[in-house]
Amino acid sequence: MSVEPIERVPAQGPGHGMLRFREPLTGYTILVGPPEADPGLWRQNMDGALEAYRRFGAEEALEYDKVIDGLSTSLFFVALDAGGRVVAGVRAEGPHKQVDEMRAVAGWAGLEGGPAFRRLVADQIPDGVIECKAGWAARDCEHRRALADWMARACVHAALLLGVRYTSAHSPEHALNLYRGSGANVAWWIPPSSYPDDRYRTFAIWWDMETYDSVATESQARLLDLELSQLTQNGLLPRIAWTPAQGSA
């Protein structure tokens, strides 16, 4: 298996100024950058997420009106099909300096697991923590399962691109194995929340850049290595600098 070299998007076409690579299993083009790099793509990503969340009556969790200006988003990832259509995406916030900057904290506010979740985030902040949110894939696109696996890997890429040790997220119960496949840990000692409403059991999860590769499945670890090696070889991941020596052991 090989990965097309990652490069900067040429001036013509969408995503100028963003990073680009080809997802190995689907052939979709992946673009990565801050919202201001391509406001049109950013809006397409968020509009696609809104449509996807509305199908499940969970649009409240997206907080569309609060985040559409892009100011709270550090990076977003989108997958484009051969026709240039945005078919999937995910976004990242942070690095966070204070616990209450993390939106997921609100999901446990007032609940039994609220204090434990706050402690988890507080322990991570000194070594750097971001939050990945708003993952979605178009209902009618091909390779939806492979795209879900890619979005889980994007949570690792985001941490390395932003130079932090941890990515935090929250996951519905049915998706836990998906995220564990890319190296996520599940905070089983924190009682799940009912975020965004009582239909869901939502668990706190996180990726640790020191251990994710030992938790990930063999197939996901291999894809992560392929993608990250291309990022570093092409000099496009200058902040991929997390090592154990940077933080606490």
Rank of each mutant, 00 (worst) to 15 (best):
L80H: 06
L80A: 09
D81T: 07
D81Y: 01
G84E: 06
G84W: 01
G84R: 09
R85M: 11
V86H: 02
A88F: 09
A88D: 12
A88V: 08
A88P: 10
G89N: 00
G89R: 02
V90G: 04
R91M: 11
E93Y: 06
E93A: 05
P95E: 09
H96I: 04
K97V: 04
K97A: 13
Q98T: 02
Q98A: 14
V99P: 07
V99C: 02
E101I: 10
M102L: 15
M102R: 12
V105W: 04
V105I: 15
V105H: 00
V105Q: 12
A106K: 13
G107P: 00
W108A: 02
A109L: 13
G110S: 12
L111Y: 08
E112G: 00
E112R: 11
G114L: 14
P115F: 15
A116H: 00
A116I: 00
F117Y: 08
R119Q: 14
L120D: 01
V121D: 01
V121R: 01
A122P: 08
D123G: 12
Q124V: 03
Q124N: 05
Q124G: 04
Q124S: 11
I125E: 10
P126V: 02
P126T: 01
D127K: 10
E131V: 09
K133G: 03
K133C: 05
K133M: 03
G135P: 12
A138L: 13
A138G: 09
R139P: 12
R139S: 14
E142H: 15
E142M: 15
H143A: 10
R145A: 07
R145S: 10
R145P: 00
A146V: 05
L147P: 08
L147K: 11
D149Y: 13
W150T: 03
W150S: 06
W150E: 06
M151G: 04
M151L: 15
A152C: 04
V156E: 09
V156Q: 07
H157E: 07
H157M: 07
A158V: 01
A159F: 09
A159T: 07
A159I: 10
A159E: 11
L161W: 11
G163Y: 01
Y166N: 03
Y166V: 05
S168H: 02
A169F: 03
A169N: 02
H170Y: 15
S171E: 08
P172F: 08
